[in-house]
Design a protein around this nucleic acid. Structure first.
Lengths: 203, 203
DNA sequence: GTATGATTCAAACGAGTGATTGAATCATCC
DNA sequence: GGATGATTCAATCACTCGTTTGAATCATAC
């Protein structure tokens, strides 16, 4: 037994990423991890707390890097543009995805499977909000509410791209493909964010 | 009893839209619908077939309208632009969402909750593929594979926006808000699709 | 080497799951 | 109005769920 706790976390990350939280049972997790059922509750307390710790462990690293990159941009003088802000948001995730390919899927699940909103809120929203604010400052011609809504679109596109991320290939090939997709995504999003404000409704 | 089958469909649409497929039990559905548990299996056969019929009923109407609008565009002479193609895709969904507010959420779930891929594939992909092809023709300067990937981003943004669509408000207010969001979404997506192709990777 | 606390284990808990059954009720036609 | 087929009903099936329990095993310190 190397480390029961880690084996549970690893397996849960993979299975929940592939199937979703509600559709993945603890028994499936412990069977594939080769540990005892009670170990889950001993180490985590409950299924939900397992997910929480899972998300927290991975998200906090990515978010810390994102924040420091954003701060570096803002302290470099001269308002940062949309593209570099998006890069500061996506590249850390790409790094993590490269070493932990399952991570990316899980994050997509947490965002799109709206059934654990507190978890997504706790571990994602503070950072996302900071980036939205940066984007609002980079786009003074567009109403802040519309920029925020575009941030919503960004999360959706990201989550969907992530949760259907390339499955089992050779590591190098998966990595290249992931990088290619992220690059396309950032290009797509940068143009979307920079679009002129949509006109108000007419009757 | 007006119609047991319709009551099941209505309630299932709402609950699955709100909670997801795996997280919604048949017993919750029949309790809120006020019908007997066996009625579900009598009328549909199984939980999964219920979902299938649910999606099929709603999707086929929307898709039929989408297709006829797209064909009208293409037969009007002169290659249709990105914006009008997107409008032909989104406006029918908006109409449906206006009369059946739960529908929009359910669709988001089906797309993002990847656990019933055959269902999403059966009822969504044919139409989506047709629109992707139209967009590829409207964007000759961009590699078709990249346009297809952008279609993926579009679905993600749409699904996420839909599944977190405005909850219980007055009907008129919800309608206006939905229309506003869709307008922003199309503006955002049109700019994204029209972005120059992302450059190839460098080492 | 024995005591102590951390960890693992098999077993069971009660509640909830989708599905099935066969009798009861309903509608419709002859 | 009795027969026939469609629909509804309460009851139960076998199973899975997350969680709990208490004894067994392990590690570490004395």
């Amino acid at each position: 037994m190397i480390d029961t706790k880690d084996k549970i976390l690893e397996t849960a990350e993979r299975l929940i990423g592939e199937q979703g939280y509600a559709a993945t049972s603890l028994r499936q997790i412990i069977a594939e991890a080769g540990v005892n059922l009670a170990a889950v509750h001993y180490h985590f307390g409950s299924k939900e707390e397992l997910l929480d710790e899972l998300v927290q462990r991975k998200a906090e690293k990515v978010n810390a890097i994102r924040m420091s990159r954003l701060q570096a941009l803002e302290h470099a003088g001269g308002k940062p543009g949309v593209r570099v802000i998006l890069d500061a948001f996506f590249e850390p995730a790409l790094e993590m995805a490269s070493s932990h390919p399952q991570f990316v899927r899980l994050m997509g699940r947490v965002i799109s499977e709206g059934m654990m909103p507190e978890i997504a809120e706790r571990h994602f929203y503070p950072t996302v909000q900071r980036f939205i604010r940066a984007l609002q400052q980079a786009l003074p011609g567009i109403p802040p509410a519309e920029v925020a809504m575009r941030g919503h679109f960004m999360l959706g596109a990201l989550a969907h791209t992530m949760s259907s991320s390339p499955k089992t290939k050779k590591v190098a090939a998966r990595d290249t493909e992931l990088r290619r997709r992220m690059k396309m995504l950032v290009t797509f999003l940068a143009a979307g964010f920079s679009a002129p404000a949509s006109k108000a409704e007419e009757a």
